[in-house]
Design a protein around this nucleic acid. Structure first.
Lengths: 214, 214
DNA sequence: CTAGGTATACTGACCAGTGAATATACCTTG
DNA sequence: CAAGGTATATTCACTGGTCAGTATACCTAG
């Protein structure tokens, strides 16, 4: 049985990841993945039961690294919670300006396989987003925010909306707009004593600070 | 030359629309569209130059009706602007509970064809979203909101985020969360004298039931 | 010498798009 | 009005190519 550290399996997964992310699931053939990995199709089918399995493995391999990246961006920002959240969007905006950026692999796979609701890849994508939401909620709860669950959901909506819109318009500034909306919502939910100075900057109207909405 | 009112062309477009929306672009063959339309493939190719053309026509046919629906939901709500915006999300949440709902056809097509940046269908999708954003901005400007452009972009992000997340989790409640976040942001941006009483309800904490969010 | 792993070569199904012929409807001209 | 032509609209049958997945054989390491 091939272990996850199997070098051949790793090569296949690496090739699949690049191709599926760059071109989409149905646009990439198993032959193409095998060729990119430098092996034959039969070897690929020795390591993965089917193309569907390979697609699921592609997303599963992206789960932990993606979450770790978000957490690092959050942790490394030295500001208050609204700024830490905005930092995630800031880093994503930078990534989105790279020519090979193609949005969120989890969302794009879900959109492409929307006609197969029980597909293993979709379940992995859903679990990934749930983990991110749960982590955010924990961060908000730690900061003393009462409606941490609702707020985490709102962050998720802004983030995934930004993935979709930036991909559609090829305009990374929407990612920054999402970051400012996120900062506004988090700042409004924060208990007063811990609110950061930067979070008092209104993202919506320069005249009316949104502090009263909490 | 086939006019847009051509009954055969309409039949093809109707079949294409149902299939592409339900199954995705690359999952639907031209043969399948022709069969669903009750014609032969060659007839389809008489009316459309290629499959790519057909995909673009599918989205173009959805542009105006979709916008008209959003405008109607906005206009028919009798509340203030934050409530009118929330009404759009409320109606979409209802639609999302239908078993055949598959998210936003424009976004899903964009996600699937992300490897073909210049594809005509993507340009039509981008134009559609830009029209919606411009219309929203005009509504906000009419309501005396200073940062109407930024606010309209935030609404777009919440809306498209909700499309993506609801499709991923098959949980329409995210659409309502997005609606409440939208209501909060619009209410915070509104000049004080015209702010509605409902908009003072905090959208962040779930303990306060928002009207219509059932 | 045997079991895990890889290669060549294949299957049957499907795919986008086309060639050649035919039907229909209208329109000109004698 | 009638004969013949022309553009529109449709069909059947096909092409070259790709797809996911497999049958069989080989090969190398323990």
């Amino acid at each position: 049985m091939a272990r996850s550290s199997d070098p051949t399996r790793t090569r296949i997964l690496d090739a699949a990841s690049r191709l599926f992310y760059a071109e989409g699931i149905r646009a990439v053939s198993v032959d193409a993945v095998a060729e990119k990995a430098g092996i034959t199709k039969k070897t690929l089918y020795y390591h993965f039961r089917s193309k569907d399995d390979l697609v699921a493995a592609y997303l599963a391999a992206r789960d932990q690294p993606n979450l770790a990246l978000f957490k690092r961006w959050f942790d490394e920002d030295t500001g208050a919670v609204p700024d830490k959240v905005a930092a995630i969007f800031r880093h994503l905006a930078e990534a989105a300006r790279h020519p090979r950026w193609r949005g969120c692999g989890f969302l794009r796979t879900t959109a492409e396989l929307a006609n197969l609701p029980g597909h293993p890849a979709i379940r992995i994508g859903a679990a990934h987003k749930k983990k991110f939401e749960a982590w955010l909620q924990a961060m908000f709860a730690d900061a003393g925010i009462a409606g941490s669950g609702e707020l985490a959901r709102q962050m998720l909506l802004l983030l995934d909306g930004a993935f979709a819109v930036v991909l559609l318009h090829r305009d990374a500034s929407y990612m920054e707009t999402a970051g400012e909306a996120a900062r506004t919502l988090v700042a409004a939910a924060l208990p007063r004593r811990t609110r950061s100075p930067r979070s008092r900057q209104p993202a919506v109207t320069p005249s009316a600070p949104a502090a009263g909405a909490a």
